[in-house]
Write a protein that binds this DNA or RNA. Structure first.
Lengths: 202, 202
DNA sequence: CTGGGTAGCTAGTGATCGCTAACCTAGTGG
DNA sequence: CCACTAGGTTAGCGATCACTAGCTACCCAG
């Protein structure tokens, strides 16, 4: 007979489950991750998951939301701490990479894996699509703000540049998962983009 | 009792299985795709798969190889058909996008999904890593060739630019799967990159 | 002291997964 | 005409999946 775990309030337990599930989902694929593993890593049994979420997919969608909320807060703090508009993009990029290195944030990892399920599952596709749109809007707004404040030259297209920012995040995630293929060239790319954005290109 | 299917030689049947498997794997995730579905879509029964491949994973790795081989041939033909070195990058990019639109090529789709399995499976990670490296090398070589031929300005870093080319391919694939979020801005991005590479930036 | 609400558990369910043993049968060479 | 090879099949294996019925134990209100 198993010792009953520490009794938490429903809210606390639900948050704990989501946190664990984000970590588990970000490692394997949706179908590759099992509810049994999420429960075990959380330190509870499976029925506890189903007390808080109607299905595995609903838990997954909750993870998507939770992680983007986390990233948004991280970025807002990073922007507050950075005064020079020329460094705003760099600040949120750096904040994301540092948080990922500390294994706290798994946004793009969840995206990549959600993509492989999106073909089957209209609900996941819709959620992912909306989230990507929000992230793009956030980044584009940062760029627009930096342009108004004089940190980025005006004739760069904020929407287009935001997409490039995101696609470099994708590249970085792949590099991270495959074990540093890009290497130091990634820093060169970032430096080159920064020069381009601030108008210091030869 | 089921009518026995058309009898093919081992080589023909194996090729047919790989072709079907590529299509099936590229839609769903590795764990989400079933050997039953691959068999059914091929028009045979499951044991036939296992006559040609020792396991589902071995079939998957064969798909990875086959698709990259396909893309490589496609790109080599596209390069032969394009005389102006300034258009070489555009040529292979366009060739890839057109082939994908015709649902013939699924390279990046397989990558994205292989990534979600790479954490678990060292063999998939190794294969994917090697393939990404080869694609990067191919693209970087195209850029170096174009530089020598005078189509691309010399002080662009071929390795860095090749990574950007790849990351835009990632973005395009995501856009394709989510149903055109980026839209016409993608063309703007490509045009902007081309101007940058050919030195016609203001 | 007690009874209801709730957070947790045990012990499964049917479905489906990757995979295989055993058999069938169309060709082919002697 | 027979034996053998090789590309098929049927039927079903054990394992594992998402999910659940039903019990227990703790906490707090009355």
């Amino acid at each position: 007979m198993k010792e009953p775990r520490l009794r938490l309030s429903a809210q606390q337990r639900k948050a704990a489950v989501v946190e664990t599930a984000c970590r588990v989902f970000s490692k394997r694929s949706y179908h590759g991750s099992t509810t049994a593993e999420i429960a075990r890593e959380t330190g509870v049994t499976e029925p506890v998951l189903y007390r808080h979420f109607a299905s595995k997919r609903e838990l997954y969608l909750a993870c998507l939301d939770a992680v983007w909320e986390q990233v948004r807060e991280l970025w807002e703090k990073a922007l507050e701490a950075e005064e020079d508009p020329a460094n705003w993009l760099k600040a949120i990029g750096k904040a994301y990479l540092e948080a990922r290195a500390a294994a706290r944030i798994v946004l793009v990892d969840l995206w990549i894996q959600a993509l492989t399920e999106a073909a089957d599952d209209p609900e996941i596709r819709r959620a992912l699509r909306e989230q990507v749109r929000q992230v793009h809007e956030f980044v584009a707004d940062v760029i627009r703000g930096a342009q108004k404040a004089g940190g980025i030259v005006r004739d760069r297209d904020p929407d287009a540049e935001a997409w490039i920012f995101i696609s470099l995040g994708l590249l970085s995630t792949i590099d991270n998962r495959l074990g540093s293929l890009v290497g130091k060239e990634f820093d060169d790319i970032i430096a080159s983009r920064r020069a381009w954005m601030t108008g210091k290109t030869g």
